[in-house]
Design a protein around this nucleic acid. Structure first.
Length: 222
DNA sequence: ACGTGATCATCA
DNA sequence: TGATGATCACGT
């Protein structure tokens, strides 16, 4: 059990402490059993890092370190620093979205300040051997904010107009909408094309790879 | 079912 | 080979 960090500096110091360690070493230190692979435990790495940094576990739709205004994201990269996966941000609200703005949205709040923790993610490397990189704090610059906001506005307008079924992961320049559920049987309410309520797959907001890749490149001067 | 943590795996 | 759509585990 690691107590929540009191300051951002303390949080970054903990990042430096775990940087360079393998997932095996971090699992041992935490007394957490190594996952064999991620196929049936996809969030295992993220939860291991949460433990070491003192993030409050839970399913609350807020930042991991709310008192610091910081959201934690692990991001899988290969040995060249190439981003290997898109980044899930949060679930997508589908009803009562009319008074929602980018500024008061959950996704904006979560992305206001992110602690990115790179982790080796190449599938040919055994999970226990993968090394944790150096975490760093990031906030969107004005250009990135504009891109995020533009995509969000377009996606949310379609949702409000009952056009959710017309949205694909190809939409959006830097933010995309994709299914986010345990399986295809999960359904939730959304607006249909005539304003009626219909059942659809739950969706989540994801950051496209090229967006997070630019963040990684700038940080590590790639 | 929903929200947290995400990656898997099929197919273009 | 990479992206889209699908899926896994857990707590509530």
């Amino acid at each position: 059990m690691v107590a929540p960090p009191q300051t951002a500096l303390e949080l970054l110091a903990r990042c430096d402490d775990i940087a360079g360690n393998s997932l095996q070493e971090l699992a041992d230190a935490a007394g957490i059993k190594m996952a064999e692979d991620l196929t049936t435990d996809k969030g295992w790495v993220g939860q291991l890092i949460e433990w070491h940094l003192g993030a409050s576990a839970g399913n609350k739709p807020e930042q991991d370190f709310k008192h610091l205004g910081i959201e934690l994201k692990t991001i899988p990269i290969d040995r060249f620093g190439k981003v290997l996966e898109t980044t899930f941000v949060c679930s997508t609200p589908l009803l009562n979205t009319i008074n929602l703005t980018w500024e008061n949205s959950n996704i904006c709040n979560k992305l206001s300040k992110v602690l990115w923790v790179p982790v080796q993610g190449e599938r040919h490397i055994e999970l226990c051997q993968r090394i944790v990189g150096t975490g760093f704090l990031w906030s969107a610059n004005p250009d990135q904010t504009r891109q995020l906001k533009n995509d969000w506005n377009e996606l949310m307008e379609k949702i409000a107009l009952g056009q959710i079924e017309l949205i694909s992961a190809r939409d959006g320049q830097v933010v995309q909408l994709r299914p986010k559920a345990a399986n295809g049987q999960c359904l939730t309410d959304a607006y249909g094309k005539n304003g009626e309520v219909i059942k659809v797959r739950p969706r989540g907001f994801y950051l496209k790879k090229h967006f997070t890749q630019a963040i990684i490149n700038l940080q590590f001067k790639l």
